[in-house]
């Protein structure tokens, strides 16, 4: 039984996508998939360390009231775990040190960025980029093409060329703290997914690039490739009937493209972490 791939999805305070994320993980072959309310972690009843794969799902943590995921990041950084004398952030740090995987989607990506988990250049967990209001100032739901960087260390996108997924956000525009950071992201192949045309050529043009993100960045990983976040929703395309044109594209495969990211993660865990 110790050879099980165990995934956790943290829920509560405004997460919305935990159930479909759990479904995606199950389809991808994870053996244990738990949706855990954050109070279970803060009371110490559930230990993060028992899992291999932490999923931070989409939603509106605390309503995004202080800016997307800001209040959520504050909670994860400062909330104590009852009776342990530690903070949840200490548990998270150990989880990362053990080489385990974290994927943040949409609000989960915003959370990782604002906690400084991504891109974590030079292993520094301080905020180096941000995700802020779309250039048109509005929330939008639309499907986008994403070009993957084949030279990226990212374990989630291995073997991928391009994927098609929905974005559903109002604050997805990536802004870097300095031009140097953007250069480093490019040079180290950490800007692993880019908004692109239907031919998978990265673009700054709206609406293919829905938010005006710098360098068309839609997803980032850290230098280990094990921490990964993206604005589009892979859990929203795991079956062909979730594709917006499945009624007119009879050749679509049964499995959706978003599933690939989860399958890569599960495969990696089986090979490296079990």
């Amino acid at each position: 039984m110790s050879k099980q791939v165990k995934a956790i999805i943290i829920a509560g305070n405004g997460t919305n996508c935990e159930r479909e994320t759990a479904h995606a993980l199950t389809l991808a072959g994870a053996d244990v998939v738990h949706i855990v309310h954050i109070s279970e972690l803060l009371t110490g009843r559930v230990q993060l360390s028992t899992y291999h794969f932490l999923n931070l799902a989409g939603g509106f943590l605390d309503g995004d009231d202080l800016g997307s995921a800001k209040a959520g990041a504050n909670r994860l950084l400062h909330a104590p775990v009852s009776g342990s004398g530690e903070h949840l952030s200490d548990h998270l740090r150990r989880f990362i040190e053990e080489g385990k995987l974290i994927m943040g989607v949409c609000n989960g990506f915003q959370l990782m960025v604002k906690m400084g988990l991504l891109p974590a250049l030079n292993g520094e967990f301080r905020q180096q980029v941000t995700l802020t209001f779309n250039d048109n100032g509005r929330f939008e739901d639309r499907w986008v093409y994403l070009k993957a960087d084949s030279q990226s260390p990212c374990v989630f996108t291995r073997g991928l060329d391009g994927i098609y997924l929905p974005v559903r956000h109002g604050e997805g525009k990536l802004v870097a703290d300095s031009p140097q950071i953007l250069d480093d992201l490019e040079a180290r192949h950490l800007s692993v997914l880019k908004y692109s045309t239907a031919e998978y050529v990265p673009t700054m043009d709206y609406p293919a690039n829905p938010n005006g993100s710098a360098a068309a960045i839609a997803g980032l990983c850290d230098e280990s490739g094990r921490l990964f976040g993206l604005m589009p929703h892979p859990e929203a395309y795991v079956h062909r009937t979730q594709h917006p044109r499945w009624t007119r594209e009879p050749k679509l495969p049964e499995a959706g493209m978003g599933l690939w990211l989860y399958q890569n993660a599960v495969r990696f865990i089986r090979r490296e972490l079990l």
């Binding site: 919305n16 479909e20 929330f139 979730q242």
Partner: peptide
């Protein structure tokens, strides 16, 4: 487009 019409992943 301003409404999320596919959260929960069930809108076919």
């Amino acid at each position: 487009r301003r409404y999320d019409h596919e959260v929960q992943g069930a809108t076919v």
